[in-house]
């Protein structure tokens, strides 16, 4: 029988994997992919609570609505981030995050 704990543990594992990717990898596109993994971990947690909580229908629909918003914002964020990465590549011909220090004072 699937429990809420299963969803939470899976979500935590996926979030930790994504966090490791964000901190350890130096390729900007890989960092972006790891952020997508973390957003999906959040989605797993949301759907888990939505189907296991003993709440009213409108409260449980909130979980689904939030997932739709998270997916939308993830798409918008990805479009902007890819544009920034391509711009950086054109200006500095590198997408190594160690080379990107023009905003550092």
């Amino acid at each position: 029988m699937i429990e809420l704990t299963h969803f939470q543990v899976l979500s935590g594992l996926l979030f930790a994997i994504g966090l490791y990717g964000v901190l350890a990898r130096r390729n900007a596109i890989l960092v972006l992919m790891s952020i997508e993994l973390m957003l999906n971990a959040v989605n797993i947690n949301l759907i888990g609570y939505s189907i296991f909580m003993n709440a009213s229908e409108s409260h449980r629909a909130l979980g689904h609505v939030l997932i739709i918003f998270v997916i939308t914002i993830a798409a918008a964020e990805l479009a902007l981030a890819i544009a920034i990465i391509l711009r950086l590549y054109r200006n500095k011909s590198s997408i190594n995050t160690d080379d990107i220090n023009i905003m550092r004072w």
Partner: peptide, 24 residues
């Protein structure tokens, strides 16, 4: 120069994992 900071990343992600799993 990939995976240069992997020990820090591993420790941070394991601490985060521990917190999430303990609340789960």
């Amino acid at each position: 120069s990939d995976h240069k900071h992997w020990p820090i990343a591993l420790v941070t992600s394991l601490i985060t994992l521990g917190i999430i799993i303990s609340t789960a």
